[in-house]
């Protein structure tokens, strides 16, 4: 459907010759833009409806007091489906600590949440197909699971700022909220408006960059990148990705270009994960509740797990 639309606009309306770089880029751009926006609206709406049933407070209640592996699995699943504004990290962290949830589980949640989000999943699915999307989700979960366990081994409780232990959360009052389906529908619509309103520029920019690569990526670069598919490529990609900060949306078209030009899947996935999982702004926010030793450890462990996952995919695919 989207391909026909792009065919129509590029070849029939503007009358371009198939096969030229300009036409190739434009065709790719039109097809991806329409497809991605269609899917974004649909998925954000559905997730909005779903999210009107799940809140951080409920997540906490589900996770609290469970056996550790159950708690961790729940935290990761819930982290994957409930993106939260990074400014909520602090209250969330405190809330989890106060509920007696082990810090390692909280970190699993904090790793999973930014890495797996519906927008990244839609973009990946739209641009590179479902197989890599599934791989990406699975590897995100693995990193969150393993990362949380390893962090726990270092007893990170000793680095939590003192005041955090002293905060007492009030009993959550029952929220006097409109729970009708109509109100949930309104909530979901607002979500679509706010989120699409915020990211549309980045989607355009990202897909635009991807489209340019599609038509104009020099072959010599590709062979250089192809040579880079050795053991060191994964750590290099990850080390490049960690300081970069993007909400996974901007990086996906770049990832597509990398894949297209022969960079290995593991290397590409590792690059994407490293950009999404760790961001300096989030570290600065988390610094309010936990000392820098813990944050350094967090960064190191997540980086290492991502590298391992990258190597793993490169070796099996």
């Amino acid at each position: 459907m989207f391909e026909q639309l792009a065919d129509f606009i590029v070849f029939e309306v503007s009358g371009m010759q198939a096969g030229t770089p300009v036409a190739q880029s434009l065709h790719f751009f039109v097809m991806d833009i329409t497809k991605i926006f269609f899917m974004l609206v649909l998925v954000i709406y559905l997730m909005g409806l779903f999210r009107s049933f799940v809140s951080a407070e409920k997540v906490r209640n589900y996770v609290q007091g469970r056996a550790e592996w159950v708690a961790r699995s729940l935290a990761i699943l819930l982290g994957a489906v409930t993106p939260f504004c990074s400014c909520s990290s602090v209250p969330l962290f405190i809330g989890f600590v106060e509920a007696g949830i082990p810090l390692g589980v909280t970190f699993s949640f904090l790793i999973a949440s930014p890495m797996i989000n519906e927008i990244a999943v839609v973009m990946l699915f739209g641009i590179v197909g479902w197989k890599i999307t599934v791989l990406y989700i699975l590897s995100g979960m693995v990193v969150a699971f393993a990362g949380g366990i390893i962090i726990q081994k270092f007893k990170p409780e000793r680095w939590v700022e003192d005041y955090v232990w002293k905060i007492h959360m009030g009993e959550a009052q029952t929220l006097e909220q409109d729970n009708s389906l109509k109100a949930r529908h309104r909530y979901a619509l607002t979500e679509v408006k706010t989120i699409v309103g915020r990211i549309w520029k980045w989607v355009l920019l990202g897909v635009g960059a991807g489209a340019l690569f599609h038509g104009y990526f020099p072959q010599e670069w590709a062979s250089n990148l192809g040579d880079a598919n050795n053991f060191l490529a994964v750590p290099l990609a990850v080390i490049m990705g960690v300081p970069l900060y993007s909400n996974a949306v901007g990086v996906i078209p770049l990832a597509e270009a990398m894949l297209l030009k022969g960079v290995a899947i593991g290397t590409t996935l590792a690059f994407m994960m490293s950009i999404a999982a760790i961001s300096v702004p989030e570290l600065i926010i988390l610094r309010k509740v936990i000392k820098w030793q813990a944050l350094a450890l967090f960064t190191a462990i997540v980086t290492l797990s991502i590298i391992l996952v990258g190597w793993f995919f490169n070796s099996i695919l």
Partner: peptide, 28 residues
């Protein structure tokens, strides 16, 4: 933060009207 948490909410922004929580998490 201590005051925010004292209302028992974990996702911001939250809105309190006359002492009652009316909204949690996200833009209303």
């Amino acid at each position: 933060m201590a005051e925010i948490m004292s209302y028992g909410i974990m996702s911001t922004p939250g809105v309190i009207v006359d002492g009652k929580i009316v909204h949690v998490g996200g833009i209303p």
